[in-house]
C-alpha cells in the first residue's frame, strides 16, 4: 500500500510540512526531510521551485526564486533524493507547477518518482479533467497518488467529481487566497469546513493555506484529518536556519 494511504489510516491528526527544495541552501533537501521525520511530522511536501508560482504568496515565491538561483532543477532534486528511502520512511509528496514536469516528460517524471520512492504529487495548475483524460493512467502505472485542491468556491458537484478521481486525500484550501496570506479562521471558514465534513467524501481531507501555529493547526484538525503548513515553515527556516526544526514542530503540536 502507498505510504500516504497507510499514514491516512493511522488514528491521529496528521501534520504535513511543505518546504522549498534548494532553500535556504541547495544541499539542505535531505537533511530537512530527515529532521522533519525525526521530529514526528507525518507527511512532507517537497516543493519543486518554479519561476512563476501563481498560487503562492510572497514567502514561497521568494524561497522559490532563491532556490532557482541556488541552482535547483528537477534533475538536481532527483539526484539529491536518490537514496532518501535508505534513511526515511515518511510519505513524500512532490509539490510543483506543471511546466517543469511537462518539460521533463510526464512519464519520465513519474517513473523517476517511483524509483526514488515518492508517494504522491500535488500540481496546482494541472486541472482535474486534463489529469483524468491524459495523465491518470501514467500516474497510476507508477503507483503515484495525485492530490487535488478544493476551495470554498468549489461547487458540491465538482467536489464529488474530484473525490471520485482522487485516491489519497483532498487538499482543502482554507480560504480564497494564495499561500501564506491568511491568519486565523473565522466563521466563514469553519462553516465551510463543516459543510465539507458533512459531505462524507471517500477521501479524507487535509486543510492547507493559513495554518501557521498551534491554534490554527488545532482549529483545522477539528474538522479534517490533518493540516499542511508551508509558508510558516519557510519563514522559520529563513529566520532561524535549518537547525531548529524540532522547535518549530513542537510549537505547532504543543
Amino acid at each position: 500500500m502507498n505510504r500516504i494511504n497507510q499514514k491516512l489510516k493511522e488514528d491521529k491528526k496528521l501534520l504535513s510540512i511543505y518546504f522549498t527544495a534548494g532553500y535556504p541552501n541547495i544541499d539542505d533537501t535531505t537533511s530537512i526531510i530527515q529532521d522533519l521525520e525525526k521530529n514526528g511530522v507525518d507527511m512532507i511536501e517537497i516543493g519543486l521551485p518554479f519561476s512563476d508560482p501563481l498560487a503562492d504568496g510572497p514567502t514561497i515565491q521568494d524561497s522559490s526564486t532563491k532556490a532557482l538561483k541556488n541552482g535547483m532543477t528537477t534533475d538536481v532534486l532527483f539526484t539529491q533524493l536518490k537514496d532518501i528511502r535508505k534513511t526515511v520512511n515518511i510519505p513524500l509528496i512532490i509539490m510543483g507547477y506543471f511546466n517543469p514536469m511537462f518539460q521533463y516528460g510526464i512519464e519520465a517524471f513519474c517513473k523517476k518518482c517511483q524509483e526514488i520512492g515518492i508517494d504522491g504529487l500535488i500540481i496546482p495548475d494541472l486541472p482535474v479533467d486534463v489529469y483524468h483524460e491524459e495523465y491518470q493512467a501514467i500516474f497510476e502505472k507508477y503507483g503515484l497518488i495525485n492530490v487535488f485542491l478544493i476551495t470554498p468556491q468549489t461547487s458540491d458537484d465538482r467536489i464529488r467529481y474530484i473525490d471520485s478521481i482522487s485516491n489519497g486525500f483532498i487538499y482543502m484550501v482554507s480560504s480564497a487566497s494564495t499561500t501564506g496570506t491568511q491568519s486565523g479562521f473565522g466563521n466563514e471558514q469553519t462553516s465551510y469546513f463543516k459543510r465539507i465534513g458533512k459531505m462524507n467524501l471517500n477521501n479524507p481531507q487535509i486543510i492547507g493555506f493559513g495554518i501557521s501555529n498551534n491554534q490554527t493547526f488545532t482549529q483545522a484538525t477539528q474538522y479534517a484529518k490533518g493540516a499542511i503548513i508551508g509558508s510558516a515553515f519557510v519563514k522559520h527556516v529563513t529566520n532561524e536556519g535549518i537547525d531548529t526544526i524540532g522547535k518549530f514542530v513542537d510549537s505547532i503540536c504543543n
Partner: peptide, 22 residues
C-alpha cells in the same frame, strides 16, 4: 520558444530546459 504552460495556457514559450520561464 518550446511548447509549455504560461499564465494558464499551453503555448509556445521561452523557457529553460528545466521548464523555468525566461
Amino acid at each position: 520558444g518550446k511548447e509549455g504552460i504560461i499564465h494558464g495556457c499551453k503555448t509556445l514559450l521561452m523557457q529553460t530546459n528545466d521548464g523555468q520561464i525566461t
